[in-house]
């Protein structure tokens, strides 16, 4: 922790960065994002086992961007988000100062996207055993059971859009669901509106989701949304050979065409 505070203090002092996005103590048993702009604020940075959420979404928040040159404490999920955002031309190489805390509490600083790519090749990007068990349970269901499972989950949705707001990849200035003239999907949080919203969002994340799970963590109604987008990771990998968030210059599988693309899904 001290190493992190010292490092950020130095970065702020020598004006390498204007603000650092890291973790700080939150309410009672929670941690929260903090934005250190002064040495005093940097002294409040923490890094504990509870500091697991993906901070990268803040890199695109208007007011955060306007703090100046940013530094960020990135975990594996955040590094992958940053790679995916780079491939979508949302972050430029060198634009953000990126720090990573190693298992032995030492710090790794990434000088460029290439070094992040090399790091991610060796990093563990597997899902947790708990997530794996939940996915297997869903995949073992028949199509109709699965339909019923998700419809039951979506029934709880209140369309607060916390999932969308928490997702680093949901950065559209005007989401499809907010376009109401004409309405592409029903705006209301009724059965059809909830289903259409979540399916639309999942489809828009196919091949882009890096499975950080922030959508599910954000949901006040406890809908396991990460399990929905997770199920689109494999089809994209097997169908197009692409895994999101591994390369800064990746081409988005669903927006390009290659002559040797499989066409067996076209009837």
């Amino acid at each position: 922790m001290n190493e992190l505070i010292n490092k950020v203090t130095k970065l702020l002092n020598d004006k390498t960065i204007d603000a650092f996005i890291g973790y700080g103590q939150g309410s009672t048993d929670r941690v929260r994002a903090i934005f250190a702009r002064t040495v005093e604020q940097a002294s409040k940075l923490i890094y504990t086992p509870a500091c697991t959420f993906n901070l990268s979404g803040y890199l695109l928040k208007h007011e955060v961007k306007h703090l100046g040159k940013l530094g960020i404490l990135a975990n594996v999920a955040a590094l992958r988000s940053i790679m995916q955002l780079a491939s979508e031309f949302q972050i430029k190489d060198g634009e953000v100062y990126i720090l990573f805390v190693n298992d032995d509490a030492s710090l790794t600083e990434f000088s460029d996207f290439q070094s992040i790519e090399a790091f991610l090749e060796k990093a563990n990007i597997d899902i947790t055993p708990d997530e794996k068990a939940r996915i297997e349970k869903i995949e073992a269901m028949s199509v109709s059971e699965r339909w019923e499972f998700w419809n039951k989950e979506f029934e709880k949705c209140i369309k607060c859009y916390a999932c969308r707001a928490a997702c680093p990849m949901c950065y559209c200035h005007r989401c499809t669901t907010d376009v109401n003239q004409p309405q592409w999907i029903p705006v209301a949080s009724h059965e059809r509106g909830n289903l259409d919203y979540h399916l639309m969002r999942a489809m828009h994340l196919a091949g882009r989701c890096i499975n950080c799970g922030e959508c599910a963590n954000a949901c006040p109604m406890d809908i396991p949304l990460n399990l929905l987008t997770y199920q689109l990771i494999d089809p994209i990998k097997t169908g197009f050979g692409a895994t999101a968030g591994m390369k800064a210059d990746a081409v988005y599988a669903l927006s390009t065409f290659k002559p040797d693309d499989k066409e067996n899904f076209i009837i």
């Binding site: 994002a33 803040y58 607060c160 859009y161 916390a162 707001a165 928490a166 954000a218």
Partner: peptide
């Protein structure tokens, strides 16, 4: 600064 603008 940390508010992400959802409606929860």
């Amino acid at each position: 600064l940390r508010c992400i603008g959802c409606g929860a």
